[in-house]
Nucleic acid binder design. Structure first.
Lengths: 183, 183
DNA sequence: CGTTGCTATGCAACGAGTTGCATAGCAGGA
DNA sequence: TCCTGCTATGCAACTCGTTGCATAGCAACG
């Protein structure tokens, strides 16, 4: 429903091929909107048919052609309309929370396994936070004024950083709680 | 893939009908796993066929029968296996973040509309936080010891509270940033 | 020289989840 | 009395998204 719009924003920031978009979704955009390359190719095809984007084939010698996409006037209009529409409430899916409540119906062994899992999970969030902070130091060193686009990118990144810090604090709380149960 | 497990946890906490489950998903469980009544009825049927849950028909005079579900031994075993499996990384879908980055490609009018939207969005999160805090005061007043289930429910609720507080802080940051652009 | 991995795109099949609609009786308010 | 809303379940059609697989050439490593 909204992958189209995430793609439009990404292509406005920088035109590119489906493959390049897929890589951006693994990095920058993927912080707040995930998508596989399949889904991206599929949606790009439809967007091209509907005239939201235009494609330019770029030959590259031996390799298969690259199709570089840019946003067309129709796509820009669609995006503007969407931007002014109400924000839909997010569909929350937090598997770990389900597991924690489920741990009440498992034994001490199961809870020990969950503690190990939470520690592993915590480590991935810790490295995510590191990555965000590295990116922030690189892109927003605080020297010189920022334009509109950069200021908006920065505030979204700050959201990601705040989220990761909150998660890490909560996971410490979870670990302390789990460890306090079987003792 | 994991709605089954959320249902199993909810039914272990308290057996009930599809309708009752749907209402729980609007309230308690829905904090970290959303589902419509359609999806719940569908999955319950399959779980019954697979022997994960058993249903008991409860006649209610004139009204259609209620089918109250309980977790069977197979279902408990399935849940235990799942609880010990690695936690899958969450698929993030944060529409507002896409809109904020997209606002760089809209004009001042569009950004003014976005500010209004963010304010409305902020108000819904504020009332969500209020609801959580009210529930916390009611269910965990701090008098007397808690059993395992309650302690786990409380730590999940604390996660929800921390999340809402983080969101509110971030939305203030977003509003300040948006207001700083066109001035 | 073979294996691995990267760029680059795509099909086919499936599973997950939403939306609209339908039924049916009861309770309560305008 | 009519309308709204709640309990209680379900079908049908659709969209969204994932998974597995396939192709194809090139570069780098051992």
């Amino acid at each position: 429903m909204a992958l189209e719009h995430a793609i439009l924003v990404s292509l406005l920031e920088q035109p590119g091929s489906g493959y390049e978009l897929a890589r951006r979704f693994e990095r920058s955009i993927g912080r707040f909107w995930t998508a596989t390359h399949q889904q991206i190719y599929h949606v790009l095809k439809r967007m091209e048919t509907d005239g939201w984007v235009t494609a330019e084939a770029i030959g590259q010698g031996g390799r298969p052609d690259k199709r570089s996409y840019s946003v067309a006037a129709t796509g820009r209009a669609v995006l503007t309309t969407w931007l002014r529409a109400p924000v839909q409430p997010e569909a929350v899916r937090h598997e770990l929370a389900v597991k924690i409540r489920g741990a009440a119906f498992d034994d001490a062994d199961g809870r020990a396994a969950l503690i190990t899992e939470v520690e592993r999970y915590r480590a991935t969030h810790e490295s995510t936070l590191e990555r965000y902070l590295t990116g922030e130091r690189r892109d927003f060193p605080g020297t010189g004024p920022l334009d509109t686009r950069q200021r908006l990118q920065h505030v979204v990144l700050r959201g990601g950083i705040a989220y990761e810090r909150m998660v890490l604090d909560w996971l410490d709380d979870v670990l302390a709680t789990l460890r306090g149960l079987d003792r």
